[in-house]
Simulated scan of single mutants.
Amino acid sequence: MIRLNKDTPSEVLQEVKKGDLVTDTFSKTGLVEEIETTDDGLYRIYNFHLVTGRTITIKK
């Protein structure tokens, strides 16, 4: 299980793939269904959409 939060290194965030089991250490845990990565000029934003319908968002 991969723990995703603001302290997770960017290298780890980039290696997460579809089907990986992830958690945000609070209430969101599940398999990754889709990953969206965007860059707003200041932050790189990772959206991990889980099969449970929840989304974990990390800004780095």
Rank of each mutant, 00 (worst) to 15 (best):
Y43R: 09
Y46C: 06
D40T: 07
S27D: 15
E33F: 03
S27R: 11
D7N: 11
T55A: 01
T23R: 05
I58E: 08
V22C: 02
L4W: 11
R3D: 13
D39A: 02
D7E: 13
K59C: 07
I58F: 03
L31Y: 07
V16R: 00
D7P: 00
Y43T: 10
I35Y: 04
I56Q: 05
P9L: 06
E36I: 12
K60M: 07
V16D: 00
V16L: 02
E15P: 00
T52R: 04
G41T: 05
D7M: 11
K18F: 03
T38G: 11
D20H: 03
E34D: 12
T55H: 00
R54W: 08
E15D: 15
K6T: 09
L31P: 06
K60D: 14
D7Q: 06
G30Q: 14
P9H: 08
S10K: 10
I35A: 02
F26E: 14
M1G: 14
N5H: 09
R44A: 07
E36P: 03
L13V: 07
E11L: 04
S27I: 14
K28R: 12
E34K: 11
E33D: 15
V51W: 02
R3K: 15
T8Q: 07
T8W: 05
V32W: 02
I2W: 13
T57W: 08
Y43G: 02
K60T: 15
L4A: 02
N5T: 13
R3N: 14
N47V: 03
T55D: 05
P9D: 09
K17T: 04
G30I: 05
E34I: 00
G19C: 02
D40A: 08
V22T: 00
K28T: 14
T8F: 06
G41C: 07
I58H: 08
T57Y: 13
Y46A: 05
M1W: 14
I45G: 02
T52L: 09
R54L: 13
I2H: 10
T29A: 12
L21P: 06
G53E: 10
F48N: 01
I35K: 05
E34W: 07
K28A: 10
S10I: 14
D39E: 12
F26D: 13
F48H: 03
G19S: 02
E36H: 10
I58Y: 05
L31T: 05
E11G: 00
T29Y: 12
H49A: 06
T23N: 06
E15M: 05
H49N: 12
T29C: 13
L50I: 13
T25L: 15
V12R: 01
G19T: 00
K17H: 05
Q14P: 00
L31G: 04
N47W: 04
G41I: 11
T25Y: 13
G53Q: 06
V32E: 02
F48S: 02
D39Q: 10
L50V: 07
V12Y: 04
T25H: 12
G41S: 12
L13I: 10
I35V: 15
K28I: 15
K60S: 12
L31I: 06
K17Q: 08
D7W: 13
Q14C: 00
T23K: 09
T25S: 15
S27F: 15
T52Q: 09
T23Y: 09
L42E: 14
K6I: 14
K59I: 03
Y43F: 14
T25C: 09
T23V: 11
K28D: 14
I45F: 07
F48T: 00
L42F: 10
Y46N: 03
D39I: 04
R3L: 14
V51R: 03
T55N: 04
